[in-house]
Every structure is written in structure tokens, then in C-alpha cells.
Design a binder for these strands. Sequence first.
DNA 1: TTGGTGTAG
DNA 2: GATTCTACACCAA
Length: 558
Amino acid sequence: MASYPVRNDSRIVLHLDYDCFYASVFEVEQPILKTLPLAVQQKQIVVTCNYEARRRGLHKLQLIRDAKRICPDVVIVLGEDLTKFRNASKDLYLFVKDFVWGGRVEKLGFDELSLDVTEMIDYNVGVLNPHDLPSSFFHLDRTDPTVGFAYDAARFEGQTDPPSPEGCGSASSLGLSSLEVRLRIASHLAGYLRAQLEHVKGYTATGGISTSKLLAKLVGNLHKPNSQTTLLPPYEATENNSQGNVIQFLDAHEIRKIPGIGSRLAQKLKDHVAGDDATDDKVTVKDVRLFPGMGPVLLEKILRGPGAPRGIGMRMWNILHGVDSAEVLEARDLPTQISIEDSYGRLDSLDSVRRELAILAKSLIRRMRTDLLDKTDPTTPLGRWLAHPRTLRLSTRPRLPPDSDTGRTYSASRISRSTPLPPFVFALDENIDGLAERLVQEAVLPVFRKLHPDKAGWALSLMNIAVTNLVESAGDQKQSSGRDIGKMFRQQESRAVPGSRTPPVLVDPRGAANDLLDAWDAWEETDEPLPGRMCPRCEARIPDFAWQAHEMYHSSVD
DNA sequence: TTGGTGTAG
DNA sequence: GATTCTACACCAA
């Protein structure tokens, strides 16, 4: 017999999805909009619209022209600048995270969260009074028993899938699996969090409750908007339920609807299970799962190819059985890249390119300052860089992809080139416009020529500039990469060059410190005294290997 | 490290 | 498909 994946249902995961998020941000700003059909515009399309607009036939990714024709009184707001969405998203994230023990909240884009609430649920299972489930109290705080909310633990909050037979109340609770109890309690936590989100912050959300990110997200899609769904046990096969609800639930899904299976993977899977003739058929998870010979090995063979991750066969086999071991990860402190882009009808003169690049560069430097600067430290009033991107990337999209005739194969529509990011962009006392102009002149235009060496002939529909390759500054309290800054200072003192009166200063840790740290590691291997010289500004001894960075520090701070 | 693909919202 | 403006993981070279 082939071996089948085994689910680990020890965790409880909530998924939250703010309803039509961009539109809601405007509605919170201007509540009158809630009563009107509202569409958010980027360029010539409706990126999202509120439910009043959907009732009148509008939908996401619709042409503005069509939207106006179908619903002439639609209110249209511009949503190309993502700043306010980014800010609202962060605010809501921090709001929710405050409730969740251990801060186990992961962000998926601007409008979705996954919460690992296992600890909270298991604690609340422990304090349950099995003789009086209807008057339970959910404890949101381990230490203060007054913090929480009353709820009825004999029933599920919101919807379930499959729908729960009415009237299976506390009487049957004796024989209930602990998973059912835990999911029931979790459904009330989800309901509470959604109510808080709505009443405190003004945002409605849709929820999903299950035992993994995958299942919670999928089941959350069942009842939208402003509702929630719990995937009901039994998850495993029983006498009455030959498959278990997880397989039942997943099997009905079209393969493309499974998170992680995009159009490419879906097409490959369809080609194999449906064959070349039946191209229009909807292929479901069940069709793939039960295909003759199906298993991790066949899946690996089907899905292998350029760009496919290793081990994808096994991962896919797991997913087809509802097995998702991916942990809920806390959102990063810092992004791995920041990019700004704009699209254009036709960009074909160097002058217009230069103008647009300057606009993009300004936004990029603004973003770097808002996302990469620590402004909380009073000793550095202008802010302190938490990370220094080392690479600048320019991407463009030619108006027509050169390989557009055959329609058959892929159109790698974007092309890009990179260059080191010149450090002057980190100067905080210069104005952004000046820095942006200089950045375009000295870095972006040279890469542009690398991308488009021909003087003409190109016509661009999109340009994107990004900073990547972020090197975190050696943090003041945080370990930058497992290295102990305090130890470095201590060792340095104990081995200070004889005759130097002042204790040596290594270098300001806000600089790009990684090269220094490497040099330090190398020196630690030796028994040599540390060579260095005095800095007149600091009246301190600076190690030679740190001298260059130390001068940069003065030039950027003074 | 760079340039590109695929996925997501 | 691509339409918008991103962000991330992962691949080969």
C-alpha cells in the first residue's frame, strides 16, 4: 500500500480576511461612502469595490469604463498610492496581535492574517466547566481572570462546514472529540476578534477556523462577507463518515483554488489528469488525488520543470490531503525589499523616462525613510537606519513582449538589471528631491542603459525600481546575526594598545557593520594587538579596519 | 549575486 | 491572459 500523509491537528489556526479592504479604508475615512456603491481605481481598472457596488454588478479587476456603464452613479476613488492601505494594514495587524498570546500572527498581504491561537484555546479548554458550557468565560489573559468575554461553549459561533445539525447541544458534549471542543471555543474567539475589529476599528472581516493555515484560509472563503466558518470535525474517517470532513471539503475544490497552486501548476495537473482532449473540464482535487498511479513521485514528475521548487511532489501530495505543516510566522520587522512602480501607456523618450524615474526615486527614498528608519531613539533625532539595502534594481516591461506571436509559451514580460546602491541616499539631512535626482543620474540611468542599450526602439509600459539585499544594522539590543557586540567591546578593551588612555570606540553600530564584524572575527583568531589610530572628533581610538566606516559615520551624522 | 518565474492579495 | 502595485520564495547560472 502507498503511504498517505498524516495530519497533525494539534494546532488551532484562525484566518481573517478584511472585507474589500481598499474600499473599507475609504469607508472608515468617510462613513457616508458605506451607503453608496464605491469602487477603487488604479489606472483604468477597478481594483476592488464595496458590496453595495457588487450588488449592482461591479466586480474586481473590471474596466472603469464598464463599471461606469453598468452603474452610472458609482463613486470612484483613486487608489494608486498604497500608503494609507499600508498604514491601515499595519494598524489592524498590531491591534489583532495584541490579543494573541505569543504574538503568533502572520500577515498575508495587506488584508489577511493567520493566527496561531493554540495556546489560548488549550488554556481555555482547561478552565471550561463541562457541566455548564452555555455560561463559559473566555480568558484573554492568563494573569488577570477578569479580562475576556462570556460565551456559549455548547455551540459554534458563526457557520460551520458541513452545516451543523440544529439542536446538538451540550447533551452530546460528553462524547465529543477534544478537537471539536477546541474548534468550538476557537470559533468564539474568532467572533470576538471580528467584533473588536468592527466596533473599535470599523473594519468587518471574514474568518476561517481550522487546524492549519491552508484549511483555515480555504474554509474562510465559504461565507463572505462579514461572517465566519469553522471546518467541522471529524477530520479523520469514521464509521459514519467514510472519508472525514477534510477530504470531503478539499475534494470538491477546483485544483486551481488551492493556495499555492497557481495557473501554471494547475495547468500541468490538468494536462495530466484530463488529457489533451478534455481541455475545458474543471479538474478537482479529487480528480488529481485519485488519478491512477498518483502519489508524490508522479506529482514530482508532473510538476518538475524550470522554476519548480524541490520536493514539490511531496508537498503537493500533502496539500491534496489537507496536510499543511507550515508554521504561522510572525511578520518580519523589516521588509526584504521595497519597490515602487508605475505603468504607462507608452514611454519611448529618454526625457520622459528620466522624468518618471525621478518620480519613482522620490517615492522610493520616502519609503526607505518610513520603513527602514528608527525614529524612536532620541539620540538620533533624524532617525537611525535599521538596515541598509545594498542593491538597486530597475525593471521594465516592454510594450509588446518580443515573443508575442505564438501565444503558446510564456511571456517573461519583465526584464531587470541591478547595480550597487550608492550610499549617499542614506543621508538624512539632504532633501529627498535632491537625493532622488542624484540617484537617477548616477545609478538608475546607467542601469537603464544596461537594460536598453539601443537609443530608441523600446517602448515601455512599466518601470519599477527596487532596493533589495538589506543588511541589518548591528542592533543596539538585538543580536544582529548571533554576534555579541558587548563581547566585542570587552575584548577590545582587554587587548587595547598600550599607551592609549581613552578606551577605544569600535565604530558607531548604525553603520553598515557586517564587513567590520567579519574583520573582527578574523582579528579574534590572531594574537595581534589591534592596530588603530585616534579620531580627533571622538577623541577615541578607532581600529584601522573600522576607520573607513567610522569616517562615513561622521559624514552622515555631522 | 543576478535575473527570472511563479505565487499571492 | 492581462488589467494594478506590490512582496516573497525559489530557481539556475
